[in-house]
Computed example of a mutant assay.
Amino acid sequence: MTLMDLAEARRVKDQLHGFARELAERYGAVTASAVGTGAEEGATPSDAVRAPTLSLGLAPAEGGGYVVAVRYRLGVPAARAVVRKVTAEAGEAADVRRTGRIRTLSDARPRPPVVSARALGETGRSRPLRPGVSVANVAVTAGTLGAFVTDDAGPYVLSNWHVLAGSRDAAAGDVVVQPGPADGGTAPGDRIGTLARWAPLAAGEHHRVDAALALLDDGVGVGVDATYPVGRVTTTAEAQGGEAVAKVGRTTSLTRGRVSAIELDDVVVGYGDELGVLSFDGQIEVEATGPGPFSRGGDSGALVYREDGVALGLLFAGSETGGPDGSGLTYVNPIDAVLEALGVTLA
């Protein structure tokens, strides 16, 4: 396998982007027809709109260097044809995986169902507040409190837009509860704060982050426990690929993984009927290194950090397959992009 340094890998990836999009447009109509006839189990007309989907990024290689990461969703013949042509153009320098569909991970009912009683993480009421516990907008199911952040206005909870807002109708001042409603949280008894601001999401646009803030109510932010299993996490870094990472989530608690790809563009994520599928660029991919998946439904919003306690990203989505044991891959927004978009720093 031909290994490249970071600059060369980026150049090859950029060259492949145009080629891949031309192929996707050429084969798209064929794939849409296949979806319409039910050629792929579970395929829907919304799949056809973006089919065949193909994400390109950079994957760390054994022995150092990088190869091009090729990720595709659909298993219909047209999608496989695009992947074969792109992989041939990349030569040996390609790490190819089929991910299946990628979805946000705030739903507390993934495959198979994970109800509160079976979740490994903290689904109950937690005071003081701490990272990894269940949290959500009062109109959402449940996600994860990722971190505490701050600016001149005061302390905030950081999580995803689809956890703390969850709808285009959401507005600043909406009540946020801990635990999330799927875990029994209600207002006003479990109120911890209000939706403050978020990075906007819109159909048809490319995005970098799915992130939002909840301003903590007076008194709630006093004495919060901001520690993780590695201690306090107050610094950030850009993922380089291959890092050993961990996260604490509402559903799967503490899990460990490895950064399997960086700078992934055109990652298409399902957001349900209201927003449909949205595209994300510059994403981080994580594969599990222990038994089971790195994340499941309800883990959205968890902070992903290196084993030395440096934050790398904010967890927001997961795939159906593609991991080492078939349990799926996890997708993560770069943490510096999240903090910049919201104008805050880690507390």
Rank of each mutant, 00 (worst) to 15 (best):
A337G: 01
A32R: 15
P45D: 11
R84T: 14
D218T: 15
R127I: 10
G189D: 15
G143C: 09
P181H: 03
R306I: 06
P324E: 14
V209P: 03
R109E: 14
E89S: 07
G18A: 13
G193T: 01
V140Y: 07
D107C: 08
M1T: 07
A214Q: 02
F280A: 13
A244M: 11
F280M: 14
A171I: 01
R197T: 15
G180P: 01
R98P: 00
A196Y: 11
S167D: 14
R84S: 15
A239W: 02
G63N: 09
A214S: 09
T321C: 07
D325I: 01
D152Q: 15
G75A: 12
V344K: 01
E205P: 03
T87Y: 00
I335D: 02
Q283S: 07
D218A: 15
R250Q: 10
L314E: 02
S46I: 15
A202L: 12
L74I: 06
V68H: 06
R130A: 09
V224Q: 06
P181A: 01
E274F: 10
G322Y: 05
G242D: 00
V269P: 08
R127Q: 11
G180C: 03
G143M: 08
L329E: 11
L254Q: 09
D265V: 09
L215A: 15
L74F: 10
A59D: 06
E274H: 10
A108T: 14
P131Y: 06
G146A: 01
E243W: 09
P291H: 05
A94V: 13
L329I: 15
L201N: 04
M1D: 08
E205D: 12
V163E: 05
M1K: 04
G173I: 02
A214T: 05
R250F: 03
G143Q: 10
G249L: 08
P179T: 11
A48Q: 12
L264C: 12
V224D: 02
Y27L: 14
A79H: 04
A94H: 11
M4Y: 11
V277Y: 13
G221V: 04
T31L: 13
A246Q: 14
D308Q: 00
A20S: 12
Y27Q: 12
A153R: 15
A9S: 04
R84P: 05
V163Y: 03
L312Y: 08
L278I: 06
L216T: 04
G343E: 02
R191N: 07
A347L: 14
D225Y: 07
G257W: 06
T321D: 14
A261N: 00
G42M: 04
V286I: 15
R71V: 10
G309Y: 12
G100K: 04
G64K: 05
F280V: 12
P52K: 10
I262G: 00
S159L: 02
S319Q: 14
P229F: 05
D265F: 10
V268L: 12
L201E: 05
L129F: 06
P229L: 04
A69E: 10
M1H: 08
T345R: 13
A212N: 06
L339Q: 03
A226G: 15
Q283Y: 01
A246P: 00
G65E: 04
F280L: 13
I102S: 06
A237K: 06
R208P: 00
A94S: 14
D5C: 02
T104Y: 10
P112I: 07
G42Q: 03
A94M: 08
